[in-house]
Design a protein around this nucleic acid. Structure first.
Length: 1051
RNA sequence: GGGCCUGUAGCUCAGCCGGUUAGAGCACUGUGCUGAUAACGCAGGGGUCAGUGGUUCGAGUCCACUCAGGCCCA
């Protein structure tokens, strides 16, 4: 073995610069590609990238999810897996369209169509592409290793063709159908409004009719269900009445003699005074009650006109009975679907009543409101009416009041597979676990059909063609380009599978009409949810790759994706293959601003990733995200918090690394690759902790526990730096090969443990420590193998012993501080009280270390008896509480009243003491109590957590002198440092003589010389005409109350 | 309005199956420190463990309700 020579490492470092250097190294050595090629043929670990929407620049929350996405694939590569991790981009959909609308100054669909769909879509494609480039820069900079070169893009023809194939599979299983969806609709513009358009048009103080309508109960004389509505025009579409099952209802006889049903809480505010309560009921009692329909304009082939339950029913206003017209309300439609109610669509696309609604045919519905009320009143079905002021949406473009209106659209019948959705979810591991049967599980149990169609332009066109023959319902679903070619009879090789091109393809229908595509495009969540299939252009290509990649081992996104990507992945996979799309899913909380408020563009408190990368680097950003809080929690984030991470963790690690390289290069040691049995206590301890760390981190990563895989590394680095290195400094100065080897092993191992989380600093250290000295080593830490731990090196007893020493040392320092005793002043004795005999043994084993750390000559344990200590018997609540329950407080009190010294000695003799309290006798064994002793006079004491450490405060002359000698050494060292001497320089030291100096040097002269590398120690006698050479750096200070002057010069 | 999550020091977070005096780090103040460290050690101030009620010998921990914040749904 030859002496390793490392590249020198400066104690200070610019992390962003260092990281740029590593990125360059990865590029040069083609490490990303090799992380795949070098694992060819290995078992596969499958990661699926949830495609970000390319409609804006990436924010810090995207860095968060990418950081958590990255950690496990990197770990698995090091574990010897082949991890494909293909990138992907979500490029379709409303967000992209809106961005382009803004760029072009367009507003609304009519203007888009006037502008031209062809050009509009061309712009959408270009816009998506531009943002992808932004994303790629961020992705590379933060060290997220996805393959960007082969990233799937949802607007590619091949991707769309796979989506068509999937839809065709649904079609053939009868899972695709056209149904009604209630949308906010502008009757004047003739178009539904998107949610963001809707939010622009709410007006407060809108006045609408307030109408209380009586629905005649079947089979009950003169009895009515009283319902309330602000939209009388929806009443001809009524098919049911909804109540809240848990609400309280009353049956009353009103002043006019009618029997009315309504919510108890609202009776006083609605009914004319003087009514009589006949009965009180629960909502559930009303379920199924039948009533006479108000109108019969349409033939109906389903059960209707009865009472259903709706969790949307409240007693905030109205009557607690809600009139249900599925064509005109989302809740209504939902209830309609749940109870299989008919949908009576009485209104046409211009907002006018259809011809079948004979009295008001052709009338704009809002204008018909008064006539409808009159008509009901004439039949005695109007209880009362008035006006109602509320907030109502209007068209932001033309100011017409919007209607909620059921529009035909395409649905995926997910509810048909609800049970499978729920069952298959049980096979998925959710982190945090509560999402599984909480948020996600609930959502699945309440699954409703997926509204797939969107009346937009930039999206996957639904591959559905229908005959335009009047009255025809002939429809075909196309599952591939080849199929389409067969239909149209010519090649479609150069066809862009977007609008408007596909819309132009037609062919003759069998019923004499022409087959034309429906105008809708697919919900873009369908695009992303289909990525396991579509990213491979399956089944048209890549069958073999797909077979290996079809189910993800791991996916990760933020919590808002439970109803988004997590759901659509699960739904598509369940419907298509009857298996879960992913096995493990990490669900992240959101990032909040430093003050805990939401981070949003409008508040202007969004953190730009580049600001953080430039200030502190990507590693620190990532480390902060991994260690700050559990991944599922929302977290506060700021540039400052990352700065704290740098100071606390990154710098500690870096400086330990720099320290090691400095002393390694100064000394002459040989790297021991074999696991030589370490001799020194601290070496054994450190390697024990290190191996335990490897085990802990490995186990945590295996169970997707990021916190558990990172925080222990931080704790280890802290003890490495502030305990192991600090206590071993002398050995490093001496070039002790065992110490250097131990520290080397720790740093090289830590670099690997850090590789998945802080890939840059891990690489930096690995390159210098491992690759730089071992020609056999892998080219990159990320191509190297995950470290193995050795159980034989884990010594849990030693770890516990050391933890106790640290505890005692801490308390000892505290005791010193209390008595104003500097650490360099040796003391005669420390008296320690530990909690049990095992700990006493622990401390005895490591007492040299403890004495050294505390600079004390001897250790004693506080015993029960004796003049030096006070004792107190303390009963353990856990043991006595469990044994005697409510007797515990009495025992405690009784014990405290007894003579403590006598009691203590009885317990220490192993005696069981009978305690009498309140006439009862309780047996208290020595195991039930702790005897605490506290030193009396002459000690300074510190106490915490059941431990006590006391140091003697008396100093004799010898101790005092030794203290002076150490003070002198410290001053000389400081002077050396101030004079910029090299650590290894030999010096001449001058000391102005005095009795005190004379005395100290007589006893400790050699010690001082050795410590300070002093060759000549000159005692200067001014009274004999000597003087310190004036040009030398000198220092004056007080020692034992006397003025001292020293000076040094290089020999 | 419904579901899920969160609430512990000025800030970021620990706190196991309920059990001794609720802990770290940052920040602040003081102090100490023998050659790596924008470090580190020690101490101090700073807590109605969001609130109320309950279970229990004993509640930060379990239960119920309330409040505040987040996300999703309506």
């Amino acid at each position: 073995m030859t002496k390793p020579k490392f590249r020198d490492v400066s104690p200070s470092v610019n992390y962003p610069e260092m990281e740029e250097g590593i990125l360059e190294l990865w590029r040069e050595r083609d490490v990303v590609a090799r992380s795949l090629s070098e694992r060819e043929g290995c078992p596969e670990y499958v990661f699926h990238e949830g495609p970000p929407t390319a409609n804006g620049r990436p924010g810090i929350h995207h860095v968060l999810s990418r950081a958590f996405k990255d950690i496990f694939p990197r770990y698995k590569i090091m574990q010897g897996y082949y991890v494909q991790r293909r990138g992907g981009w979500d490029t379709h959909g409303l967000p992209v369209e809106i961005e382009v609308e803004k760029q072009l100054g367009l507003s609304g669909k009519q203007q888009i169509e006037a502008y031209g769909v062809e050009e509009f879509n061309r712009r959408c494609r270009a816009s998506a592409q531009e943002y992808i480039e932004d994303w790629e820069r961020m992705t590379v900079r933060m060290g997220f290793w996805v393959d960007l070169k082969t990233a799937y893009v949802t607007f590619h023809n091949s991707y769309i063709e796979s989506l068509w194939w999937i839809l065709k599979q649904f079609w053939e299983q009868d899972l695709l159908y056209q149904g009604y969806k209630v949308v906010p609709y502008c009757p004047r513009c003739g178009t539904p409004l998107s949610s963001h358009e809707l939010s622009q048009g709410y007006k407060e103080g809108t006045i609408d009719p307030s109408v209380y309508v009586k629905f005649k109960v079947k089979g009950e004389e003169n009895a009515y269900l009283l319902a309330w509505t602000t939209t009388p025009w929806t009443l001809p579409g009524n098919v049911a009445l909804a109540i809240g099952e848990k609400l309280d209802y009353v049956k009353v006889r009103d002043a006019g003699g009618d029997v009315l049903y309504m919510a108890a809480a609202l009776a006083d505010s609605v009914l004319t005074p003087g009514y009589e309560v006949l009965e009180t009921l629960k909502g559930s009692d009303l379920l199924g009650m039948r009533y006479e329909p108000l109108y019969r304009f349409y033939p109906v082939d389903k059960e209707y006109a009865y009472v259903v339950a709706g969790d949307f029913v409240s007693t905030d206003d109205g009557t607690g009975i809600v009139h249900i017209a599925p064509a005109f309300g989302a809740d209504d439609m939902e209830a309609g679907r749940k109870y299989d109610l008919p949908i009576v669509q009485t209104v046409d696309a211009a907002g006018r009543f259809r011809p079948e609604v004979t009295p008001w045919a052709g009338v704009f519905v809002k204008d018909a409101d008064p006539a409808i009320q009159e008509e009901l009143a004439s039949r005695g079905l109007l209880y009362k009416s008035g006006t109602y002021e509320h907030t109502y949406p209007f068209c932001w473009r033309c100011d017409s009041p919007l209607l909620y209106w059921a529009k035909e659209t395409w649905y995926v019948r997910t509810s048909a597979k609800r049970d499978r959705l729920v069952d298959l979810n049980q096979q998925i591991n959710w982190y945090p676990e509560h999402i599984k049967n909480g948020r996600f599980g609930n959502w699945l149990e309440n699954n409703v059909d997926w509204a797939l169609g969107r009346d937009r332009y930039w999206g996957t066109p639904l591959p559905i063609w229908r005959s335009d023959a009047p009255g025809s319902d002939y429809v075909e679903c196309i599952g591939s380009v080849a199929e389409l070619e067969a239909k149209v009879g010519h090649t479609l090789e150069d066809l862009d599978l977007h609008r408007p091109y596909v819309d132009q393809l037609t062919w003759p229908a069998p019923d004499g009409g022409t087959m034309r595509r429906v105008t809708e495009v697919a919900d873009c969540w369908f695009d992303s949810g289909s990525m396991p299939v579509a990213q491979w252009h399956y089944p048209f290509e890549n069958q073999e790759v797909w077979e290996r990649q079809k189910q993800a081992d791991y996916i990760c996104e933020a919590i808002d994706q439970t109803r988004g990507w997590f759901y659509t992945l699960h739904a598509v996979s369940t419907l298509l293959f009857d298996r879960p799309a992913f096995k493990n899913v990490l669900c992240l909380g959101h990032i909040l601003a430093e003050d805990g408020s939401k981070m949003s563009k409008s508040r202007g408190n969004v953190v730009n990733p580049w600001d953080v990368f430039d200030a502190h680097g990507a590693d620190a950003t990532r480390w902060n995200m991994y260690t700050a809080s559990p991944p599922g929690n929302s977290r506060r984030f700021s540039v400052n918090l990352v700065g704290e991470t740098v100071r606390k963790f990154m710098n500690t690690l870096w400086n330990t690394y720099s320290f090691f390289v400095t002393y390694s290069n100064l000394s002459d040691w040989a790297l021991q690759t074999e696991n030589a049995e370490p001799q020194a206590l601290l070496d054994r301890w450190l390697l024990s902790e290190l191996n335990m760390l490897v085990r802990t981190v490995t186990e945590a990563l295996e169970s997707y526990d990021v916190l558990g895989a990172t925080r222990p590394i931080a704790a280890f680095v802290d003890s490495l730096s502030n305990w192991y290195v600090r206590l071993s400094r002398r050995r490093f100065w001496d070039g002790d090969p065992a110490a250097l080897n131990t520290l080397y092993t720790a740093l090289a191992t830590v670099s690997k443990l850090l590789a998945p989380s802080t890939p840059f600093i891990a690489e930096e250290m690995y390159q210098n420590l491992v690759a730089g000295v071992d020609p056999q080593a892998d080219d990159s830490v990320h191509l190297s193998r995950w470290p193995q731990y050795s159980v034989e090196l884990i010594d849990e007893r030693l770890n516990a012993d050391m933890a106790l020493v640290q505890r005692v040392a801490s308390l000892g320092h505290s005791a010193r501080q209390a008595a104003n005793l500097k650490v360099r002043q040796p003391l005669a004795q420390v008296v320690v009280r530990v909690r049990n005999a095992e700990e006493r043994d622990s401390l005895t084993r490591l007492q040299d270390l403890a004495l050294d750390e505390l600079n004390v000559k001897s250790l004693a344990f506080a015993d029960a008896a004796g003049d030096l200590v006070d004792v107190q018997v303390f009963p353990y609540p856990k043991q006595l509480g469990q044994k005697y329950g409510s007797g515990y407080p009495k025992i405690r009190q009784a014990l405290s009243k007894l003579d403590q010294a006598e009691l203590a000695s009885r317990f220490q003799a192993g005696e069981t003491v009978e305690v009498v309290a309140d006439g009862e006798t309780y047996a208290v064994t020595p195991e039930d109590v702790e005897v605490r002793s506290t030193p009396r006079a002459g000690y300074s004491v510190a106490e915490a957590g059941g431990y006590l450490v006391a140091v003697t405060t008396e100093l004799d002359a010898a101790l005092e002198q030794e203290g002076h000698a150490r003070e002198l050494v410290r001053r000389i060292q400081q002077l050396r440092k101030d004079a910029n001497l090299e650590i290894s320089d030999r010096i001449v030291t001058y000391v102005l003589d005095s009795d005190l100096v004379h005395e100290v040097l007589a006893h400790f002269g050699n010690y001082v010389r050795e410590e300070t590398l002093t060759v000549d120690l000159v005692q200067v006698h001014p009274d004999q005409g000597d003087a310190i050479p004036a040009h030398l750096p000198q220092a004056g200070f007080e020692l034992g109350g006397k003025e001292i002057v020293i000076a040094v010069s290089k020999k």
